[in-house]
Design a protein around this nucleic acid. Structure first.
Lengths: 191, 191
DNA sequence: ACGGTAGCCAACCAACTAGTTGGATGTCAA
DNA sequence: TTGACATCCAACTAGTTGGTTGGCTACCGT
């Protein structure tokens, strides 16, 4: 393997290992030694590639968001269908939801992560797509609707303890019913 | 102050200091020394009263939830109004939202906190109240709706970075507009 | 062939941390 | 008055942790 490939492979292994650890434990709870061991790489390489534990976390969040943008296409004409696809993606990738929650708690709305302009741009295009699907002009109102749709899709995955409390263990496990309820709610709200 | 009052005062001071620290930093990020210092109490008293850092966290979450139940009454006849009141409460008490998020991340849906049966019971009564307000029988469907309403109320406070990204700094700061959008969405969904 | 450098490593370090310990003080019941 | 005990404290402990250091190896350009 050429040095360039070796470097890229080390970086990729660290990002993947870090993603697992940060999703599970958050920034403060994650252990750098654990990340390095899981990646099969020396701990010093974390500092060589990323500079610090927190910057590694930043890189993980940015990378993860790129992946969801790739995986779930634009809202399009059927906003409820979009929410359903998003809901499914979050259900299948709870680590992404958890990373966003850790990010929210760790930074609040204060810090713009590296590449945040790209993130803003991508999300802006989602709002444009939603506006088109609703037969409206892009506007702050449509942006807020976009935000609420994402919340509807993410909430059940984000707060499992509330599912348990309100729905009971069986109800919490009935994801199809939850999905149907979310879509019904969204369809009713948008019509 | 009698010993009984002194003990109660120590415990209350620790809970309040812990609430601040856990809301800000989570379980792994919080520092026991910081909690003790903020409470003006010796660190050993944390272990004397609560047993461990994690049990202190549990006590904080339980206490905080008792407070929101006291502060925001039942859904009643106007579900959208209820969502508005809840939205306002979460806006004014972001530490509660953060505690719930830390709880979600730390435990997932796996652990039932002490007194969870009371919590389940209280939340169940909310579902009953919502059902009455909607002119329906209590059911899993209504419970899911209850969950979604709470999510609608909490989401903007929970994920400030998404507000920034979708709405921009100015849009994120326009809480009245956000509140109006949430209520409009909810009213449309429930009618 | 050789010098410079990138990428990597094992070992280290200084600071931090949750939890414990031995003892002091005040209260209370006998 | 005295012994037991609850509540509290300062100091301690053993382990942990993010980050650093000195050095090695392989690659590359001259």
């Amino acid at each position: 393997m050429s040095p360039k490939d070796s470097t890229a492979a080390t970086r990729a292994a660290l990002l993947e290992a870090a993603r697992v650890e940060f999703a599970a434990k958050g920034v403060a709870g994650a252990r750098v030694d654990t990340i390095a061991e899981r990646a099969g790489v020396n701990k010093e390489r974390i500092y060589g590639h990323f500079g610090s534990k927190e910057k590694l976390f930043d890189a993980v969040v940015v990378t993860a968001l790129d992946q969801v943008t790739e995986a779930v296409s634009m809202p399009g004409k059927d906003a409820a269908d979009y929410v359903g696809r998003l809901y499914d993606y979050y259900r299948e990738h709870p680590d992404l939801v958890r990373l966003l929650m850790w990010e929210a708690l760790h930074y609040g709305g204060e810090k713009l992560l590296p590449g945040q302009e790209r993130r803003v741009d991508k999300c802006g295009r989602k709002t444009v797509s939603l506006a088109e699907g609703l037969g409206r002009e892009p506007s702050p109102q449509v942006a807020r609707t976009m935000l609420m749709l994402i919340g509807m899709a993410m909430w059940p995955t984000a707060m499992p303890q509330l599912n348990r409390i309100f729905l009971g263990a069986d109800g919490a496990a009935d994801h199809d019913a939850m999905r149907d309820s979310v879509l019904e709610f969204v369809r009713a709200a948008l019509d």
